[in-house]
Every structure is written in structure tokens, then in C-alpha cells.
């Protein structure tokens, strides 16, 4: 788990509310001082708040066999915004994330009910091709997982397999690596194995690989949980940059990370039913500022103030 120092939680609400009163609709102002500069540029960089959903979840439940892992989740994913999913272990946030690009299809027995729409198209409709879905909705994983190939081939793999029309692969690779803030570190060793990089570099390589296929949405499943604080900060900086062009959904264990980087936050929790089975459930979804300063639900408040979880 990342150990980035952060301000004590009880101070955050004040800070946050100050900003909120000044800039009425803003949820992008960051309480964490260390990255506030980036937050400012971001606020200036593009529309502070978007209310154009590219995806909509309504009544989504995910089953593994007969077991209902997450039940009845409804929330939008706003365009070119960062949406965070937080909550304790086993609350189903990763499960929901993986249902957004049909990665759950790869788990035998996994089943999704309800509807997940992408530009109004139900992703789970019969005639939808999961491969086309994943071309548009990319994913970065918890543990960096570069292919055992060269850095260049890692980035070029996606465009090659998806049959993208590429005029100049070298340019595309360079652009992706630049966008992932990795170019300067690897430009002289594109032929070396991706596995030779440090953990943080590997994760940025995975991000470069993902944006090389020009997806509309990038899903990130706890992308910093295997990284040290410095590498984490770099990835977070990168997310701000990427939010100019991409819609990002991030699952994180780390509340402070959600507070720092996201525009919207969904808080999940695990409920235990009569049969002693745990089911994940969405408790609250709102703009990040509101969720952390003025949560509507008691369980959210308990969680963010550290009384639970």
C-alpha cells in the first residue's frame, strides 16, 4: 500500500469546502498540497466538470456461479473525467470495473445482469463483440504486467493485433511513450525487455501500451498498489494529464488517492446477508468533493473518517 503522507482527514473538509465555495462547481481542486499545482493546471486545462456520461451502469449485478459478488449498482461514468471507486476489500469495486470492458467474460462462470451502456449501446447485448469493447475501453492492472518483449513491441502490440492503420509505427510508439511520461527514460533502450524496467516504469509502460490503441476510456485497477510513493506520484500526475483526452475509471484502496485525483467517487461496501455471504454494494456516488466533505450516507462518513475499514 502506498504510504504517501497526507493531511489528517479532519482537516480536509475545511480545505475542500473553502475551494468549493469559491468555485461553485469544481470538484477538481485537490486538498493535497503536494499536487495542488497540478490540480490547478488541470482545472484550467479543461472543463472542470463534465456531465456527459459515456457509460451508464443501471442495476448491475455480477455473479460468480451462483454467488452474487456485487448487487444492483447504478452510476454514470462522465466523459473525460476521473471516476474513482473506493471501499474496503471484497466490496466488489474491482469486479464492477472488470464488468465495464467485459474482462469478467474471461472468468468461467462469471455473469452480469442489469445494463452497462456505452454511448447508449448495451455492452452485454447479444450481438456485441467483447473484443471491440476492449479496443475502446482499455485497462491497466494492479500489478504491472508488461509482455516479456521489448519496450517497443509492448507498445506496438495493441496497434498490431487490433489491425489499426498506422502510418508510422515508430511515431506512434514514441507518442504513446511520451504521453505516458516514459519516453525520456527509455528512448535509448526501446529494444530492451519491458521486464527490465523498474516497477513504476513498467506501470507507465502498461499505460503507454494502453493508450497506443487510442481507447476512449481507460480502466485502472489499483494501478499504484504495487508501487512506491514516488512512482505513485508520477502515475497520479500522469492521470491528470490523461484526463484531458481520456475518460478514466480508477479503483483504489487508498482514499487519499481518490480524493487527490478524481472528479467523481463511488463508495462501495460489503454487506453480509442472512446466509453470511458477503455482497458488494454501491453506497454512494457523487462528486468527489461532496463525497468527502458532505457524505450523504452514514457508512460513507464512517469509512472516510476512518471509523470503519
Amino acid at each position: 500500500m502506498s504510504t504517501v503522507t497526507y493531511e489528517p482527514l479532519h482537516r480536509r473538509p475545511q480545505h475542500q469546502s473553502e475551494v468549493t465555495t469559491v468555485n461553485h462547481s469544481s470538484t477538481t481542486s485537490r486538498p493535497a498540497v503536494s499536487i495542488s499545482a497540478i490540480a490547478d493546471t488541470q482545472t484550467a486545462g479543461h472543463q472542470a466538470t463534465s456531465t456527459v456520461p459515456v457509460m451508464e451502469l443501471s442495476g448491475v449485478s455480477v455473479y460468480y456461479g451462483a454467488y452474487e459478488a456485487v448487487r444492483d449498482t447504478s452510476m454514470p461514468i462522465q466523459r473525460k473525467q476521473i471516476t474513482a471507486m473506493i471501499g474496503p476489500s471484497g466490496c466488489g469495486k474491482s469486479t464492477i470495473l472488470r464488468s465495464l470492458n467485459r474482462m469478467n467474460d474471461l472468468i468461467p462462470g462469471a455473469r452480469v445482469t442489469g445494463s452497462v451502456t456505452y454511448h447508449g449501446q448495451d455492452l452485454y447485448a447479444k450481438d456485441v463483440d467483447p473484443i471491440e469493447v476492449r479496443r475502446r475501453i482499455g485497462m491497466v492492472f494492479q500489478k504491472p504486467n508488461p509482455f516479456p518483449k521489448s519496450i517497443y513491441d509492448n507498445v506496438a502490440y495493441g496497434p498490431r493485433v487490433t489491425g489499426m492503420k498506422v502510418d508510422n509505427m515508430d511515431d506512434l510508439v514514441e507518442k504513446a511513450l511520451r504521453d505516458a511520461a516514459l519516453w525520456d527514460e527509455v528512448k535509448d533502450k526501446l529494444k530492451t525487455s519491458g521486464l527490465a524496467l523498474s516497477g513504476g516504469q513498467q506501470q507507465r509502460l502498461c499505460i503507454a501500451r494502453t493508450i497506443a490503441v487510442k481507447p476512449e476510456i481507460i480502466l485502472m485497477d489499483e494501478p499504484c498498489s504495487a508501487l512506491d510513493p514516488i512512482a505513485t506520484a508520477k502515475i497520479e500526475d500522469l492521470m491528470f494529464e490523461l484526463a484531458n483526452d481520456y475518460t478514466i475509471v480508477i479503483v483504489t484502496h487508498n482514499m487519499q488517492q481518490a480524493a487527490r485525483v478524481s472528479h467523481y467517487t463511488a463508495f462501495f461496501t460489503a454487506e453480509v446477508d442472512q446466509e453470511q455471504e458477503r455482497h458488494g454494494r454501491l453506497v454512494e456516488f457523487s462528486q468527489t468533493g461532496k463525497l468527502f466533505t458532505n457524505p450523504a450516507d452514514k457508512r460513507t462518513e464512517d469509512y472516510i473518517t476512518g471509523r470503519f475499514g
Binding site: L106, I131, R134, G138, P146, P148, V161, T162, R209
Partner: peptide
């Protein structure tokens, strides 16, 4: 071969055979 390699490939829109 670790599962994570397959997932990374699928997440980039590769088909099963690819």
C-alpha cells in the same frame, strides 16, 4: 504462463488466438 499476460493482451483488444 501467468494469467496477467493474457489479461493484458485481451485488455488491448486482442482476440483469443492472437
Amino acid at each position: 504462463v501467468p494469467q496477467s499476460i493474457r489479461q493484458a493482451s485481451y485488455a488491448l483488444g486482442a482476440t483469443k488466438w492472437q
